[in-house]
């Protein structure tokens, strides 16, 4: 058992206007206007994921998919319940969040790699592979602010996918760059997902889910609607749509 999610509930307290200054807070407090509305993003979710399994997560926008991924990767702490994770989680939520645009590509590889939790030794070994995959060539020693946006995305993708983590979290298949690179990156993703790592995979594309996943979890407004083998859940989901 590599991931155990036990009765996880996630509540947000929502104010209608987010109070961002002390003065505002006091004014609102004096007026008695601070009202919280409780919003349950996740409600009593329990499931397990086995090692090597690819679990698909489907649901509408706002069903709580991203919240669930954030809870599992440790970014959010659940209001109640617990999550047990045995291994290294590498999130692939959004590319290039850790880049510093004043540094060169080379420096960013090490910086971003460190943020994603790679070791120094690992990065030194894989450095050439990353550069080669990103097709940046001599641009690698140029500060990132001089890159085109496509180049930045290519570099970010190359760094993020070089790993072989215990658990990979994928929020939509990432396809970046021009057509050639898109094909290449998609192939890389497929290779990663079929390579024996445990994958949590969020997608709105049912064909992709059917193609990739061993099991599927269906979330609806924070409730766990269904969990089971891919065909059953996908068919049910299609009927309800």
């Amino acid at each position: 058992m590599i991931i155990e999610v036990d009765k996880v509930t996630m509540c947000y307290k929502m104010t209608f206007d987010r109070v961002q200054s002390l003065k505002e807070y006091l004014v609102q407090l004096l007026k008695g206007k601070i009202k919280y509305e409780e919003f349950r993003a996740l409600n009593n979710i329990s499931f397990c994921v086995n090692k090597g399994e690819v679990l698909g997560i489907i649901g509408h926008n706002g069903a709580g998919k991203s919240t669930l991924l954030k809870v599992i990767s440790g970014i959010l702490k659940p209001t109640s319940g617990s999550v047990k994770v045995n291994g290294v989680v590498v999130p692939m939520l959004e590319l290039g969040s850790g880049f510093d645009f004043d540094l060169t590509g080379r420096e960013n590889i090490f910086l971003n790699g460190a943020i994603l939790g790679y070791s120094e030794q690992f990065l030194n070994e894989k450095y050439d592979e990353i550069v080669e995959f990103s097709e940046l060539g001599s641009f690698i020693d140029v500060p990132l602010r001089n890159y085109s946006s496509g180049m930045v995305m290519r570099l970010a993708f190359s760094i993020a996918t070089v790993v072989e983590p215990d658990i990979l979290i994928v929020d939509e298949i990432l396809a970046v760059g021009d057509a050639d690179f898109q094909a290449k990156s998609k192939a890389r993703m497929m290779e990663l997902m079929s390579g024996g790592t445990t994958v949590l995979f969020v997608s709105h594309s049912l064909p992709q889910i059917r193609e990739m996943c061993d099991r599927v979890l269906w979330l609806d407004h924070g409730e766990m609607k269904m969990i089971g083998d891919t065909e059953t859940v996908c068919n049910e989901y299609e009927i309800k749509e």
Binding site: L103, L111, A114
Partner: peptide, 18 residues
């Protein structure tokens, strides 16, 4: 350790860059 080293490095490098 490695992450701290990298982040400190970044702060220091970008401080006087340009």
């Amino acid at each position: 350790k490695y992450l701290i080293k990298q982040l400190v490095n970044r702060d220091f490098k970008t401080k006087y860059k340009r």
